[in-house]
Amino acid sequence: MTMYTLHMAQADFVAWRDNARRLLAARVSPGDVLWQDDDSAGDLFASGDTDLPPPSETPLALKLSRQHLRRLECASHYWPTHQQECRWALLYRVVWRLAQGEGEALLAGDSDGGVVEQRIKAVNHEVHHMHAFLRFHQQPVTPEEQHAPEFIAWFEPRHDVLEAAARHFIDRMGQHRWLIMTPEGAILCDGRQWHIERPESGTFTVQDYQALSTMEDDAEDLWLAYYASTFNPARLNEKTMVRSMPSRFWRHMPERVLITGLISHARHGARRLGQDSRLADKRGHTITLPK
């Protein structure tokens, strides 16, 4: 029995699809393929790149609906941890089983379909996190710098969501010029066209981003004033906050500087009232009705 090793040089979905098609045509079962991402360390048992066998006399083929294809592609944007199964191997086992007539292989209740579903959920959730917690910083731009971005942001997503999430900002920002940087790539939009830039080697770092951002942004002070004031100390509930806004995002959000202070202030008595304590010391006044 031959083991086949497939190097996914460009770890992308289209390349996987071509490979999967050829493997199905040759009736190679999932157990006989070793998938290697370009970033995964070599497997102890991997032998060099093996040529795939010619198509079998009874080739397997699979027609997937567009919706199923989209689900598989979405799941392929999930970056597994080292203990988790390689994304390409999982997806190949799913299409193999579908080709054998096991329709349940893509359903959430199935052992493989369940994992696919979890990964889709995690990817979509990360897209949502990026929509929500990314913060643009306004840059001073002189009239000579007509192409420099007016708004820049740094974000560290956990999965490959840069492109999926960027569409939202293209819709949102109108004709503004902006830049979003992540370790794996940056999106640059000039108000009409956009493109993705990949780092020449390795990854972009937060220092690369900080080299771009020069000035303080005045609107941030207004935002901090709003954030502290809209907080209701009488309802203190940190658990829900941390569950909804995981702390790994805080590092690049301006409000991070307020959170612990607001919590301890609330714990030490401010909880008695809903009002922002900055207002308690200010002079107030009651209103008399006009006669």
Partner: peptide
Amino acid sequence: ICHSFTPDG
């Protein structure tokens, strides 16, 4: 979209 959460959850 929830853009932030305050410590009241």
